[in-house]
């Protein structure tokens, strides 16, 4: 299953690498998710983290890379894919919701370990 996901991820990355890079003027714009793409489950795990972040918060590319711990280039590829699906909104006066505290991270880790989260 992981091999399949990685394979799809490589295909998706290859396809989106052919897309133009994020415009400099939009790189700093905060965006949030308008809808989760159907079939997102075949997306790379890193992109699903971007979806999760944008589902609750308006973030720009730099903030996404930092919050999701993903390379900026990968964030850009994901945003391009979302833009192509018209799945992003640019809310006015958007401010990012605060990141989770370290106590919460421990809870996430405990539940994830018990249930067997993949991320």
């Amino acid at each position: 299953m992981l091999d399949l996901l990685n394979e799809v991820g490589e295909e998706t990355s290859a396809a989106t690498e052919a897309m133009p890079p994020v415009e400099p003027s939009s790189a700093g714009e905060r965006q949030r998710l308008r809808h989760w793409p159907l079939g997102f489950e075949s997306w790379p795990a890193a992109w699903i983290r971007v979806l999760a972040a944008l589902s609750g918060s308006a973030l720009d590319a730099r903030e996404l890379a930092e919050r999701c711990d993903i390379a900026p280039a990968e964030v850009s590829r994901c945003l391009n894919a979302l833009r192509a699906l018209d799945a992003l909104d640019r809310p006015e006066a958007a401010r990012p919701a605060p990141a989770a505290d370290s106590g919460w991270r421990l809870i996430f880790h405990l539940v994830g370990r018990k249930l067997g989260f993949r991320t």
């Binding site: 609750g56 918060s57 106590g103 996430f108």
Partner: peptide, 22 residues
């Protein structure tokens, strides 16, 4: 079902919606 729970936890963790652990 674990996958569903994982998505919720990811949205809490990364989407800025996690409760304060206190």
């Amino acid at each position: 079902i674990v996958r569903l729970a994982e998505l919720i936890f990811l949205m809490l963790d990364l989407g800025g919606r996690a409760p304060a652990s206190g």
